[in-house]
Computed example of a mutant assay.
Amino acid sequence: MTEISRKTIQLATLCFSLFLLRLGFRAFGYDQLYHNPNEPYGISDLIEGMLTLIYLVSLGLCIMHALRVLLRHWDLGAFGASALLALCAAQWHSYDYLHHLAASLSNP
């Protein structure tokens, strides 16, 4: 396995893990933390915002890595880079629906 393929797999694993962590927090941890009824945002919103920021940075790293592989090292990892871009696109487009689904799981 080449270094490029290993890095592609590591980035895909990181991005997918953060994606699942965000959904898991929304489904099971968001309502467990205290929220003052007089304030528009609580600690849960701040944690969710930080998780989103970390996820977006990792998503950007995945996209930059995939584009670099596709433009410079086509022969070494084109399939992995294409799969990484497909994973990023699928996560980006499915998150809104899955976020609402996870929010409905947290409210019994």
Rank of each mutant, 00 (worst) to 15 (best):
M1R: 12
T2W: 03
T2Q: 05
T2P: 07
I4V: 12
K7H: 12
K7I: 10
T8I: 14
T8K: 04
I9V: 15
L11D: 00
A12D: 02
A12M: 15
T13I: 13
T13H: 06
L14V: 15
C15M: 14
F16V: 14
S17T: 15
S17C: 14
S17H: 02
S17R: 05
F19G: 08
L20G: 01
R22V: 03
G24N: 12
F25C: 05
F25P: 01
F28N: 07
F28L: 02
F28M: 09
G29P: 02
Y30N: 05
Y30T: 07
D31N: 15
Q32A: 08
L33G: 05
L33E: 00
Y34K: 05
Y34C: 01
H35G: 01
H35V: 06
H35R: 15
P37W: 03
N38Y: 11
E39W: 11
P40W: 08
Y41S: 07
Y41A: 08
G42A: 00
I43C: 07
L46C: 03
I47N: 05
E48C: 10
G49K: 08
G49T: 11
G49Q: 07
M50H: 05
M50I: 15
M50P: 00
L51Y: 04
L51A: 03
L53Y: 09
I54C: 12
I54G: 12
Y55D: 00
S58H: 10
S58M: 14
L59A: 12
L59M: 14
G60Y: 06
C62M: 13
I63W: 08
M64R: 14
H65C: 02
A66Y: 00
A66D: 00
A66P: 01
L67A: 04
L67M: 10
L67W: 10
R68Y: 11
R68G: 10
V69P: 06
V69M: 10
L70H: 01
L70W: 01
F79G: 10
F79H: 08
G80Y: 02
G80F: 11
A81T: 11
S82N: 03
A83F: 11
A83C: 06
A83N: 07
A83V: 15
A86N: 06
A86H: 04
C88E: 01
C88V: 14
A89D: 01
A89F: 03
Q91C: 04
Q91T: 01
Q91K: 06
Q91I: 13
Y95S: 05
Y95H: 04
D96S: 07
Y97N: 09
H99S: 07
H99F: 11
H99I: 06
H99G: 04
H100Q: 09
H100L: 14
A103R: 15
A103S: 13
A103E: 06
S106V: 03
S106H: 13
S106D: 04
N107Y: 05
N107A: 13
P108I: 02
P108C: 03
P108N: 06
P108D: 04
